[in-house]
Design a protein around this nucleic acid. Structure first.
Lengths: 135, 135
DNA sequence: CTATTTACCTATCATTTCAATAGGTTTATA
DNA sequence: TATAAACCTATTGAAATGATAGGTAAATAG
């Protein structure tokens, strides 16, 4: 299941996309609009800034801003950044140590197919699409 | 992510489908073939029996057997039985209390679409398809 | 009848993950 | 210099996960 971290991250991104272009929005404003605790939101925004998906500026007049136009973000990258990976099973996680049963596993092809499906779905929807319900 | 419970359940089902028809297979045999601890496997098989997708018979000569031909099981029902649900997010879980932000949530339609995609994928693959890699 | 084989049942455990909170530090602006 | 803001590290409580332990009931074989 997709955790709240990724879900909140997506909501924040759509929120910021809806604000005035080229202005910094303080965390507090986002927290109020999205009804998410400031402290928890902070940890999520930290991840987004580290991943270069958002820019943060300190001090008075500071806040957060998108680094690209909404059409240049995919939903997939936002989820993957916050969630770590969108692999459907542990054995397909990046860096998972190769399973000894890999060759004879009857279910591995299923998980691979589903993983590909999931990847395609989320990486073919942009933030703009998400806002416009265009998917 | 799909937990080991559902993953093991699927492996057990494919394993049983590959055994002699109309014979009861002891848990111990399955555990050895699938390299799963007997005790843990027990708890999974209990779920499958309760869900009527396996039949269990006690005593000497007993064991487990499929209740239907492999083509009459969907992968979806097996996952859902063991996993509880295949909802992608908490707010779409069966019996989740209605979210107050439901109307204005920018991401809910996305999760619904993804949930439908997931459901369709898994419910359109039978156990037979899984065995034959036919999906 | 008795020993054996098997499923079934209840409880417990250790570890990890998840969601959230707390309190402080740095940076920029007015 | 006061204030507003992001940034940083650590901690917490609760739940889920994966697994183990020990016993009970039923069926069969000898």
């Amino acid at each position: 299941m997709i955790s709240t971290k990724a879900r909140y991250a997506l909501r924040v991104m759509t929120d910021l996309a809806g604000q005035e272009k080229n202005s910094y929005i303080p965390l507090k404003d986002i927290a109020i609009r999205q009804e998410i605790s400031e402290k928890y939101l902070e940890s999520i925004l930290k991840t987004l800034v580290k991943g270069n998906i958002l820019k943060g500026v300190r001090g008075k007049g500071g806040g957060y801003m998108l680094t690209r136009p909404p059409k240049d973000y995919t939903v997939g990258e936002i989820i993957e950044l916050t969630e770590g990976s969108l692999a459907p099973v542990a054995c397909l996680m990046p860096g998972a140590r190769s399973c000894p049963r890999r060759e004879k596993c009857a279910t591995l092809p299923l998980w691979k197919k589903y993983g590909a499906l999931t990847h395609d779905f989320f990486y073919n929807i942009t933030l703009e699409d998400l806002i416009n319900n265009n998917f």
